[in-house]
Amino acid sequence: MTSTASDPIVSVRKLHKSFDKLEVLKGIDLDVRRGEVVVVLGPSGSGKSTMLRCINFLETFQSGTITVDGRPVGYEAGDHRRPLGEARNAKVREHVGMVFQSYNLFPHRTVIENVMMGPVKVKKVARALAREKGMALLAKVGMDHKADAYPGQLSGGQQQRVAIARSLAMEPSVMLFDEVTSALDPELVGEVLKVMRGLAQEGMTMIVVTHEMGFARQVADRVVFMDGGVIVEEGAPGDIMAAPKTERFGNFLSRNLDQ
């Protein structure tokens, strides 16, 4: 792994986001370096999903800046804050993989077609090459035996692994995971976490929103605790999860201890 540890892949500065009058993000600053795994913890409604969705501009935001791989997200860099426009937003999203709680596979496409969709339709990769790379990714997530099945024929855990492969097919600079195991039966959670662990070991840059405390403790390079739209506390899991500095994080941890 050639991790040039200092250059941030994702850089969030003074991010403010409101839904009408409700301010959901109240000044978020976050840098994620190449190869880093950042786990975001926080109670429901604290703005974790909203922050992730701002990073690939699935949500607009009122102020602050975000860059991915040095590219501005959503708005022109500089003072003018002009919206970038559809084409450039799409371009930025190519570099940001996102996996959702509800998998969101394309139900009318087979597993391999789902994985090929991004490369073929967005990057204009030749179908044969996309298929070959797609099959390799499916093998990696243990789903190559279901390449020709439709999403509706798979279990939740299997669908989620395919969804991860679909995102990886775009060869993103960073992967965002939004509670990707929360919709799964407990016995299926492990197979998805295993895939994510593998990615982390290969040096994939990841921002992971999860309630899986074990995963945070074992895989995260850094844990970020959000509450009420701000980052309350952050640090290495070994430090802050063992000895939280704030009462809010301490309470959160004790409430979620059993997990």
Partner: peptide, 9 residues
């Protein structure tokens, strides 16, 4: 949303 997240315009 999934399509947009993949970078599809």
């Amino acid at each position: 949303l999934a399509a947009r997240a993949l970078g599809m315009p």
